[in-house]
Computed example of a mutant assay.
Amino acid sequence: MSGFKPVTHRYDDALSRVSWDAFERLMAEHYRRLGYAVEHVGTGGGFNRTDGGIDLLLRREQEVIVVQCKHWNCWQVPHNDVHQLIGVMHTAGAIGAIIITSGEFTPKAIESGFKFRHIRLIDGRAVRAMLGPVAEPEMPHATVDCMPDWAPVRPRRSARRRSHSPLVAAAAALITMAVTLTVLYQYYLNEIQRAQLEATRASMTQAATRLAQASRMPPTYPGFTAHKPTSTIQGHPAIVHDTPTSKTDIAEWERQNAASMRILEKTTPSLP
C-alpha cells in the first residue's frame, strides 16, 4: 500500500485470522469484563455505515473513553490515525482514547502517543496478552490491510467491500437475469401481437375481396332466372323474336300464327 510501512513481524495465529468485526467484538467483550459499559458504535457492531473514527465507547461512572480498533497484520498503523483519534476524543467529550492494533505502530505513531498522555497505544503483542488464547475462526479471513499496492488507501472499507463482493455479484447476476427475461418476454408478446394483427388483416382482405366479387355476380339462388338484356332501337325497347330456322319450326310457327289470328277474329268486335 502506498504510504504505509510493512510490519517487522507478521503474526500467524487465530487472532490474525479472525475478521475485522470479530476483532472489534473481542475487544468489546474484554472491556465489559473489566467493568465498562461498552457501546459498540463502529460498523462492526450493527447497521452503522460509518464509525466516525470510533469503534467502541467505554463508560464507567464519570469516565468516558473512545476506542479505535485496527485489525492490521501486514502494515504498521501510522501517526495520522493517532492524531485523528485525539480529535475525535475531544469531539465525543471523552477523557481518554485507546487505539488498538493486531499488528504494529510506526515509530512516529508511538512518538505521538508519548506526547499525548490521554491516549494509549496497544500493539499486537499487548493485545494478545490482554485477550489470551483466541478460538480459531471457522472461516479464516484475510487481514484487511493485506492488499495489493493499487488498492485504495483506506484498507478497512476496501476489505469490507471485498468481503461482500460475492453477494453483490450474485445480486447483480439476478438483476441482470430478471431484466433479460423481462425483455425476452416482452419481445415474445410483441411477436404474438404482430402475428395476430397480420392474420386479422389478411382475413379482412380476403373477406373484402369476396364481398366485392359477390357484388358483381348475379344471384344464383334456386328459382331465379337471369333476364337477358333488352334490345333497344333508338333508345326504345324492341321486341326480338326468335326466327325459325328449320322447316319443322317454320310449319309450327305458321300454325301458331293461324291459331292466333283465329282467336283475334273471334274476340275482336266487328266494325260498323
Rank of each mutant, 00 (worst) to 15 (best):
T176A: 15
A92N: 00
K115T: 14
L56I: 01
A212Q: 08
R262V: 14
Q256W: 11
C69R: 04
E39F: 11
V127F: 04
S163K: 13
D242E: 11
D123Y: 07
V127P: 03
L271Q: 10
V64H: 05
S2V: 11
F224S: 05
M147F: 03
I263F: 15
H164M: 15
T243K: 14
D149M: 06
K247E: 12
R60L: 07
K108H: 09
V7R: 07
Y188W: 13
S158M: 03
R49K: 15
I100Q: 00
R154E: 06
G3E: 10
N73T: 15
T267A: 10
H164R: 15
G3H: 11
L58Q: 01
Q206V: 07
A171T: 11
V77N: 10
A170L: 12
V179G: 01
P137Q: 06
E191G: 09
R210P: 05
P237I: 06
Q256T: 11
V183I: 13
I65F: 01
S246F: 03
A170D: 12
A135K: 10
G46K: 00
V168Y: 14
L271W: 08
L56H: 02
C69E: 02
I250C: 13
A22F: 01
A135N: 14
L26W: 09
D55T: 06
T101K: 05
V88K: 13
C146Y: 12
F105S: 06
H118V: 10
T268R: 09
M204D: 12
V66C: 01
G124A: 00
G3Y: 11
H141E: 08
R255V: 12
S260M: 14
H236I: 04
R160T: 07
R194Q: 08
I122F: 02
I99D: 02
A97P: 02
H118L: 09
E138L: 12
V64K: 15
G45H: 01
T220M: 09
A172P: 01
C74Y: 09
P269N: 00
G35A: 04
C74R: 08
A22R: 13
L57P: 00
A214P: 01
